[in-house]
Design a protein around this nucleic acid. Sequence first.
DNA 1: CGTTTCCAATGCTATATAGCAATGCGAAAA
DNA 2: TTTTCGCATTGCTATATAGCATTGGAAACG
Lengths: 250, 250
Amino acid sequence: MRPLPEFAVKRTMPNRSEEPAYKQIQNAIRRRIDAGQLKPGNPVPSERELARLHKVSLMTARHALSEMARDGVVERRHGAGTFVAPPRVQFNKLLGYSEQMASLGLTAHSRVISCGVVTREHEIAARLGLAPTSRLGKLERVRLAGDEPVALETCYWAADEFPKLVDAPLDHVSLFGVLEREFGVELAYSDEEIDATDADQRLADLLEIQRGSSLLRIRQLIFSTKGRATVYAVGFYRSGRHTLRVRRFR
Amino acid sequence: MRPLPEFAVKRTMPNRSEEPAYKQIQNAIRRRIDAGQLKPGNPVPSERELARLHKVSLMTARHALSEMARDGVVERRHGAGTFVAPPRVQFNKLLGYSEQMASLGLTAHSRVISCGVVTREHEIAARLGLAPTSRLGKLERVRLAGDEPVALETCYWAADEFPKLVDAPLDHVSLFGVLEREFGVELAYSDEEIDATDADQRLADLLEIQRGSSLLRIRQLIFSTKGRATVYAVGFYRSGRHTLRVRRFR
DNA sequence: CGTTTCCAATGCTATATAGCAATGCGAAAA
DNA sequence: TTTTCGCATTGCTATATAGCATTGGAAACG
């Protein structure tokens, strides 16, 4: 072994088992943005400045900033500086119905149509990555805006994985919320197929519309942060009462 | 000035004005993936291995890999290695109709319903960031699959910016293609609003369906790579003939 | 034969440093 | 007054190195 360069001896990872330094820097900046101290367009401290302030090396400060740039929180302009990114319209945002209503300042109401365990939905089991004959939790709810029905949503999940989910009071609370709070499942994204269909007799009755009326159909396979297909949902939305916003890239 | 540490003297950026080393490494890996030598799931060389092979430092090799991971080309598993990512289904892909058909191995046909300049579409001019009374190019086309009409698409653009676009043979060629080839406009992404409506008499006639049939409506504002709103398009798609695939994130 | 333990390989965080490259502003020149 | 040029600031690429954390298989053990 040849002698170590002296600088390397100094200190190696100040406080292990804590949050990494570069994430602490990110959090500090994020907090300042959330608090309104840093507004879109404002410059954030430069790499060299952050390194001094947080007493880290330049590379570490740099790591913090370039990852935030990748996430779209800040924008970096070579030679000019790093700036808080403008707030982007939230496209492709995955929200439960309750959350969507909340973001509009409304309260979500639902009427549970059916809730239980089924075993014969082979195709859906397959989409969830389960054996064809698996026990599936199934929940059908009519979504209400005010007292008008606007959608029918049917959700499926592995019944054995989330045992008592069918007993939850899902007419009051959000399915997403229960999954996250009670089962510790963080939902990350969903792959969706969107098309138009028209209402059959049952849908017409439930949504109090004419048979044959136009409906937006959204079939979504919802994945957890671990990349596991967790919930399969099919929703039928009354025309004019629901608009999906997405951004598509070339 | 205090003496430089000897290692720093060695060599500083081998061949400037060329591709950065970390990108060369990325390209080398990408080429091997494209050539089929590396298949999804296969391990790519480790950081340390790449550093040796390409004669770069560990940090540089690491930079190459972690950026590729961010781009979804490879997946990294702590302690296990770096692996070629499985080919992902293309969600949120912005394609013109011709391109969509081509990707299905079909040929696109269109029938131009109308094509010209209008001045009275104030709301649409506003969406394109133009003065309310601006001259707008407007193109209405019925999209055909085989000889069956499946959609009506209406496009708008700034007539003064793309002068002779209304004269192009747009029943044969792709609008996207003309914009890119003739005008050098690269389209980057579109923000879309998606809902369901039903066919009025005109749509029913054009699409050869019953009045009142369900249609998927997609309104899209298409941006260039420079972030400029370039085209506004409204499409009505026959139910069952068109499925939109998107991925939404939480 | 199954279980546990250990270890090499690999990725992750971090330090210290160097020079290049783009930006933008102020001073000097036209 | 306008234009040009230089320079400080800031981001980008790169080097060399150290130790921690996770994984998975091989070896040791029961």
